[in-house]
């Protein structure tokens, strides 16, 4: 097997919490607990889960915006974390990010042209007219026009801003794009446009995506592989079709079952597809009938294969 493009090995992120007044010891919030994931070239890996499950922290660790407590992240076998980590500048050519909120992700005091061109100068890729040329190219590529470069962000709609955010992420020609809820702040009708744009770009530029999302219908549409996270751990992982046609972990089933899907509601067919079989005497981990405490240690468990690419977390 060839080396995957990106490999996350046993990633753990703990946040220290402020000490309770006078008494008690320092507690830590265990945001991510031993997450291992791989991203192959040209693939879209989606991490789904609800707020606080650690999906965003995982993404930020990949971007170098969050220091892992332990574990490593490898790009083509070379570590992105630890003592031999690349500098911020070197890292910029590897992975870029598209942010959730198109209103907060663009500096209101810079023109679009400046937002896009600044990185080219920093990395000494292009200057002056060559840079504006590239900016114009990129703007047309994401469905805007070159004359948009002279405008300020507040002159654009949410969908257009998200296009600008995508353009900014692509300026350095990165290999990986981390999409943090790329469409959840957008209107339904705009979502389709941005999703189509992202899928087109992935194909033409040969990009690999890590998408963070809570919207399962978008995830199903775009992903090659899906990892479901719950309280800091991956509880189920597999190719998109196994996850959606054979959701097995109780949490995955609850997640899919909670999506208010108009067609299913109106046809009265709210049944979920059957779960895959798990070994006899095995028990899912964590127990979803009660809420796990993110400050406590979790019970020992492991991801067990239940299909060709399909794995689910069982208690040991």
């Amino acid at each position: 097997m060839s080396t995957p493009l990106l490999e996350i090995r046993d990633l753990t992120v703990h946040f220290p919490l402020p000490k309770p007044f006078l008494f008690g010891s320092t507690r830590v919030l265990k945001a991510v607990q031993g997450v291992s994931l791989t991203l192959n070239e040209g693939e879209c890996l989606s991490i789904v889960g609800e707020s606080g499950c650690g999906k965003s922290t995982t993404a930020l660790s990949v971007m170098g915006l969050q220091e892992p407590t332990s574990g490593e992240i490898l790009f083509k076998g070379k570590p992105l974390t630890g003592p031999n980590a690349p500098t911020r500048k070197e890292r910029a050519r590897i992975a870029q990010m598209v942010f959730q909120d198109p209103y907060a992700s663009l500096n209101p005091r810079q023109t679009v042209g400046r937002i896009l061109a600044a990185q080219l100068a920093l990395h000494d890729i292009a200057h002056g007219s060559e840079a504006s040329h590239r900016v114009a190219d990129m703007l047309s590529r994401v469905g805007l026009t070159p004359d948009h470069a002279d405008r300020y962000p507040h002159e654009f709609s949410g969908g257009q801003r998200q296009r600008i955010g995508i353009a900014r992420a692509l300026m350095l020609d990165p290999k990986i794009l981390v999409l943090d809820e790329p469409v959840s702040a957008l209107d339904v009708s705009i979502q389709a446009q941005i999703i189509n744009l992202l899928m087109d770009l992935q194909e033409t530029l040969g990009l690999s995506y890590i998408m963070i999302s809570h919207d399962l219908s978008v995830v199903e549409h775009v992903s090659d592989r899906v990892a479901v996270m719950y309280f800091g751990r991956v509880v189920e992982e597999g190719d998109w079709h196994s996850i959606f046609s054979r959701p097995t972990h109780p949490y995955t089933r609850r997640l899919i079952g909670s999506v208010p899907d108009p067609d299913a509601i109106l046809s009265g067919d709210r049944g979920l597809p059957d779960a895959a079989e798990i070994p006899r005497n095995a028990r899912f981990s964590p127990d979803v009938s009660r809420k796990p405490d993110p400050h406590e240690n979790v019970e020992p468990s492991q991801l067990v294969s239940i299909g060709a690419t399909h794995r689910v977390r069982l208690a040991q």
């Binding site: 339904v188 549409h221 999506v259 299913a264």
Partner: peptide, 16 residues
Amino acid sequence: ARPRLGSRTISERGRL
């Protein structure tokens, strides 16, 4: 225009 759960076919990732 909305992405729908269960609308994707195995063969290809179609445009919305």
